[in-house]
Design a protein around this nucleic acid. Structure first.
Lengths: 170, 170
DNA sequence: CAGACTTGGTTCATTCAGTGAACTGACTCT
DNA sequence: AGAGTCAGTTCACTGAATGAACCAAGTCTG
């Protein structure tokens, strides 16, 4: 059927992965799903992504088996990460960490801790105390000292300024 | 100065990171740099990326401090990853692994081993034998059993079918 | 029970980025 | 001198992103 943005001449699995999660907005949408932002309207308001793009991206993610779209009330849907989607957590976490280290100069914007023991996660996503790599459901996130001066005031952004577990609906 | 594709309303470091490495082709170019493909013409031939795009992406990567462009002969340049660029290795490796597991059905397209001990790397990029995460310069890559039937015949693709160390010029 | 509001979209005109082919100019090789 | 290579630039065309407007189903409010 042909994915929208193809790298068809590339044999590499990286090209396949980027066809699914490499488009503009897609990884930010996935991040929001990890943060527990699961409803169309909430994601749209939080990311300022054009509705048409959000529709297309969610459909692609569902097609690719990364997201499940399921009704929770008549005409209402929530988008939850599948197992394949949850496995994107290390990538999202590391990319965030890389951005903190090299692109942000005001200190970490967001911190992640192993919920079971409270220890902040290492660069590779592992818990230094427990010597394991916690699953996203066992990770708690909170804003760090690098939070920018201009703060968004939409309800989702405000809710995300409180510590909470990943995947827990906001 | 404004990066080309901005996610300006997003505070998250992920948005900053994606402004630099989230554009079409960029991460494939970075992968080629890890594979030791460093010359403009070689990257262009290997990826089939439009020259204008490659020019723009390399300039952006240099601007962002991820790549250093240096002459090795009059009018000839090689592009080498800086320390910040080298730190993208876990992300590139994990995204490749994720693609292998969920998007490719013919087995691994490419394998990575710890050059010092010969052990294949685990999912998280670590060496199970040595219990460390090898630096990219200490990783050897070779094609896996999932290599596709239609093989590219450009010299770079052919050269990359031989085992070789990352960052070692092809 | 009418009217307003919320949710989750679609449509459309405009803008912007990606594509591919052709062209260029510096340098090298024979 | 002429051909070839490298590293681009230019340009016309296409396709995707944007943002505003519109819409329909379901829910809440007076």
């Amino acid at each position: 059927m042909a994915l929208p943005r193809e790298y068809e001449t590339q044999a590499c699995a990286l090209a396949r992965a980027l066809e699914v999660v490499g488009e503009r907005w897609t990884l930010l949408i996935v991040r929001d799903l990890f943060f527990g932002v699961t409803r169309f309207t909430d994601i749209q308001a939080h990311l300022d992504v054009p509705r048409a793009v959000l529709t297309a991206r969610l459909a692609l993610l569902v097609d690719a088996g990364i997201v499940e779209r399921r009704p929770y009330a008549p005409g209402r849907f929530e988008h939850v990460l599948t197992d394949a989607g949850l496995e994107l957590w290390p990538i999202v976490h590391q990319l965030m960490g890389w951005g903190e280290r090299h692109l942000v100069d005001s200190g970490p914007v967001r911190l992640f801790a192993h919920a079971s023991c409270g220890t902040d996660l290492a660069l590779d996503g592992g818990c230094p105390t427990c010597a394991i790599v916690p699953l996203p459901a066992d990770v708690e996130t909170r804003p760090g000292p690098g939070t920018p001066s201009v703060r968004r005031t939409d309800p989702i952004s405000v809710a995300l300024r409180e510590p909470h577990r990943l995947l827990q609906p906001v």
